[in-house]
Design a protein around this nucleic acid. Structure first.
Length: 359
DNA sequence: AATCAATACAACCGCATGGGG
DNA sequence: TCCCCATGCGGTTGTATTGAT
């Protein structure tokens, strides 16, 4: 299709550049009859004026019969993102989790689509952590919009077939990773924002029931915001900045250690093993997470007086008590309900995020 | 309709790795 | 232990295609 000039050839007179249908046919015919054997010897035996390496690449990246062609599904996309967060640019390792996809295809898809998508979500595609080189508040609507689509439950997607149980289970695990990472991003944006209503909204997290399967979320929220989530009722939410606060990363690791190369830095959540492929021997896949990875402490609502914030150059003044004292206000209620939906893992996301956007 | 820029992706390059002698 | 060779892998390039102006 595309590629190098068809007229190019190397110093040995071997052809380079795009393959012709005739060359493809010769290569396929030979391999189907004889297997590839020695790639170096293959071109001569197959009647091809190509180097063995070129033949190998053509076969493995394009002609192999088990290659799955066409667009990446949402599930595949999610798996790639989450595996990349864990494995870094180990395209071949990622490819082992996506049957029919080549490392080259995944790499190209990452570079042309997913990197940009993550950037739009406010996530650094290298570290998978929130970007700090932009005005996060200004980008919050985009972040939430991206999150809304991100949280659409893939289990309800018709694209699953009956033979994809492994992929489905895998996605389930990576989905949890994705959620946690995105929650991390959102909380980070909210917690670093001086805008009072976001803190008010976060207050209502404390009233939410959590589900057994959301232990990680539970722990994440606890460590990030110092909420007392269990048996909270109407008890006070401690949002105060605490100098002794345990960095969440020390007990609940970020998915990514921004300070380390991405290929050897990641910890599984809790003790769970998430991936069962080639890289799950656990020897040195998961390293320690430095303390710099912690979120900044949240601002105390209780201590706050009138707070000023600026959006798009306009100064606003909010009295947090207006919101805290009235939990029935629409933003508070919808945030809490929606957060519950999010944690409920069913119809996660849309209403919650839309409500959050209104804050 | 023409031009330019952005995108997509096959293919290439060069280094890394592992096995055999 | 060292060297050579075959293959694997990740990064980059080059060009056809698509979209915007």
């Amino acid at each position: 299709m595309m590629g190098r000039s068809p007229s190019s050839s190397d110093e040995n007179g071997l052809k380079k550049g795009p393959w012709t249908p005739e060359e493809d046919r010769k290569l396929i015919d030979y391999i189907e009859r004889n297997g590839h054997g020695s790639w170096r010897a293959l071109p001569k035996l197959a009647g091809l004026n190509r180097c063995g390496k070129s033949c190998r690449l053509r076969w493995t990246n394009y002609l192999r019969p088990d290659i799955k062609r066409g667009k990446f599904s949402d599930e595949e996309e999610q798996i790639i993102i989450n595996l990349h967060a864990v494995l870094g640019n180990k395209w071949s390792a990622i490819a082992t989790h996506l049957p029919g996809r080549t490392d080259n295809e995944i790499k190209n898809f990452w570079n042309t689509h997913l990197k940009k998508k993550l950037l739009q979500m406010g996530i650094d595609p290298v570290t998978h952590r929130p970007r700090t080189d932009l005005c996060l508040l200004a980008n919050l609507p985009q972040l939430l919009s991206a999150a809304a689509s991100h949280f659409v439950n893939p289990m309800n997607n018709n694209s699953w077939d009956n033979n994809s149980l492994s992929l489905r289970l895998h996605t389930d695990a990576t989905q949890q990773l994705a959620k946690l990472q995105l929650l991390h991003n959102i909380v980070q944006v909210l917690s670093t924002s001086p805008v009072t209503p976001t803190m008010e909204a976060l207050n209502h997290l404390g009233t939410l029931p959590l589900h057994d399967h959301d232990d990680h979320l539970h722990e994440y929220l606890r460590m990030n915001s110092q909420f007392e989530l269990e048996g909270l009722g109407n008890s006070t939410i401690n949002l105060a900045s605490n100098p002794n606060q345990i960095p969440y990363s020390s007990t609940f690791p970020s998915l990514i250690d921004v300070n380390q190369p991405t290929h050897n830095v990641h910890q599984p959540i809790g003790n769970s093993k998430i991936f069962n492929g080639d890289d799950s021997d656990g020897n040195d896949q998961f390293g320690a997470i430095p303390k710099e990875n912690s979120l900044p402490p949240l601002v105390s609502v209780l201590d706050s007086t009138d707070q000023c914030f600026t959006v798009n150059g306009m100064e606003n003044k909010m009295n947090p008590s207006d919101h805290i004292s009235n939990p029935s206000t629409s933003t508070s209620t919808t945030f809490g309900e929606a957060w519950g939906e999010l944690l409920d893992d069913d119809d996660a996301g849309d209403s919650f995020l839309l409500d959050l956007q209104r804050l």
